[in-house]
Amino acid sequence: MSIFIDTSTRLAVQGITGRDGSFHTQQMVEYGTNVVAGVTPGKGGQSFEAGDRSIPIFNTMDEAVQATGANASVVYVPPAFASGAIMEAADSGVDLVVAITEGIPVQDMTRAYAFVRDRGARLLGPNCPGLISPGKGKVGIIPAQITTEGPVGVVSRSGTLTYEAVHQLTEAGIGQTTCVGIGGDPIIGTNFIDCLEAFTADPDTRAVVMIGEIGGTDEQEAAAWVKANMDIPVVGFIAGQTAPPGRTMGHAGAIISGSAGTAEEKIRVFEENGIAVARRPVDIRDLIKEALGL
């Protein structure tokens, strides 16, 4: 099993003709994701060639959904237009919107998120690498070759740090049910608890890796949720122990304001709630091995 996406996912790519959109559409199709439509305003009627597939391009998400039955979308639209694209997707009736775009103004996102929530869609991101369910499909930019099928769910606020952890699991022969990047922005659509809930409901997920970082209190709330609701082991990692307060560390949301957002505090709350905390990225693999009795 997997979370959020599976073999019934019919994906529309918003911004399919752009540099990132076209490259990653090729990668997704190659991996077996069912990409049914592309959307680029002004290019409706054209098509996008990926392998032996010819993917129709539409001007709007509405047309894409009506013509192809798309039930999910991925957004590779530049930051100035991305919040509009997210709302357009939610309005078209898809269940899942994955926003890869980095650099969307936060106040744009507060509006977009309220809109998406009203439409009942799930938003993943923005500023996230998307998700991959090894063997079933991927939506976003996570490199498929570092993943393999198996029993571990991975959820993270980061991109390359997640790849590092997943790569080490895969090298050690430990596969994943789904790897989800929830994004590094202050306002994101899907948080740790949403993913933990989904992993808990998935019978194939037997352990979870949760990779957090400085800023906000999402990790602390997730830790309390783990203690109250989860029977399977959770291994945690927090990046940013050496980050100075008050400075944004690359991700817009990675900033310590006050005492709650520090790595020390998050690690302390993880441990208090029974989450085994890896001190180094390489320890994630070893703690998962231990948790699974491997």
């Binding site: 991109g159 740090l161 970082e213 990046a239 122990q241 050496t242 560390m249």
Partner: peptide, 24 residues
């Protein structure tokens, strides 16, 4: 480093091995 999360984790690892990062 490439990536913000990995960059922070690299700085943390420098500290873990007894060093001090000069930058993010």
């Amino acid at each position: 480093v490439n990536g913000a999360g990995l960059a922070m984790a690299t700085m943390d690892l420098v500290k873990y091995y007894g060093g001090d990062p000069a930058n993010f």
